[in-house]
């Protein structure tokens, strides 16, 4: 049996990750449940006044997206690290860049894409004007890709550590901040009727940069973690 080509290998890896995720639907559901619960926290904390909630909704939704992404990215490499399959992947002759990209892609499809699809419901619950919902979904769709790319850097650097959970948020949250700025600005702009295109374009540019560079950092991080 001949070895698969790089792209084919990447595709297979992506399918493996998605299959693993689909076989444990709870793992997919957990971030969404987390999202729902935290959405419920804000009216309880800030008061149920609809106009006030509508003001805060873009920021609230983006922050929760940030947190749910952060909490899930900790687990991206962990099980494969623990059972040794990650080490096999590092030893394989396939380019690590694409291998890592497959992991990130799977993570984004499972968390970011679903979040972007489901966010209109939460936007309505927080009284976000209907005109801004499309922008919210689009900005989340793009922005969560960036969050996954950055989150996996932290995951790769902390995967070998026993107490990774808290540490990864210290490492990665500062890097998330530009995404938060532009993501919530896009939605806020859409609320008052200004074009969201420029903000989305900036997020898109950051995603391009991150696709080019983040897998290199992740690959280096994984090698360090496996060596340690």
């Amino acid at each position: 049996m001949s070895a698969p080509g790089s792209l084919q290998f990447c595709r297979r890896l992506l399918r493996r990750q998605l299959t693993l995720a689909v076989r444990r639907p709870v793992e997919i559901g957990n971030p969404l449940l987390f999202f729902t619960m935290v959405v419920a926290l804000f009216p309880l904390g800030l008061g149920p006044a609809p106009d006030k909630l509508a003001d805060f909704a873009p920021g609230i939704l983006w922050i929760i997206a940030l947190l749910s992404n952060l909490l899930t990215s900790d687990a991206v490499f962990r099980s494969d690290f623990e059972d040794g399959s990650l080490e096999q992947l590092l030893l394989s002759p396939q380019p690590l860049y694409l291998t890592v990209l497959a992991y990130i892609g799977a993570h984004w499809l499972i968390t970011g894409l679903l979040l972007a699809l489901i966010c209109p419901v939460f936007a309505l619950m927080l009284n976000l004007p209907a005109s801004a919902i499309a922008t919210l979904a689009l900005s989340l769709l793009l922005g969560t890709a960036l969050l996954s790319l950055l989150g996996c850097i932290g995951a790769a650097l902390t995967v070998g550590l026993k107490r990774g959970g808290m540490l990864i948020s210290l490492l990665i949250l500062p890097l998330y901040m530009p995404v938060l700025i532009f993501g919530s600005a896009a939605v806020k702009g859409a609320v008052v009727g200004s074009p969201a295109g420029p903000y989305l374009a900036i997020i898109g540019a950051m995603v391009c940069l991150a696709i080019a560079l983040a897998p290199l950092a992740i690959a280096a991080g994984l090698r360090i973690s496996v060596d340690a």
């Binding site: 890097l175 991080g221 360090i224």
Partner: peptide
Amino acid sequence: AYDNKVAAGKACAVLSLV
């Protein structure tokens, strides 16, 4: 966080470059 200080140095180098 790293017990292995050689790995710690490398990990910090990657993080600071990021």
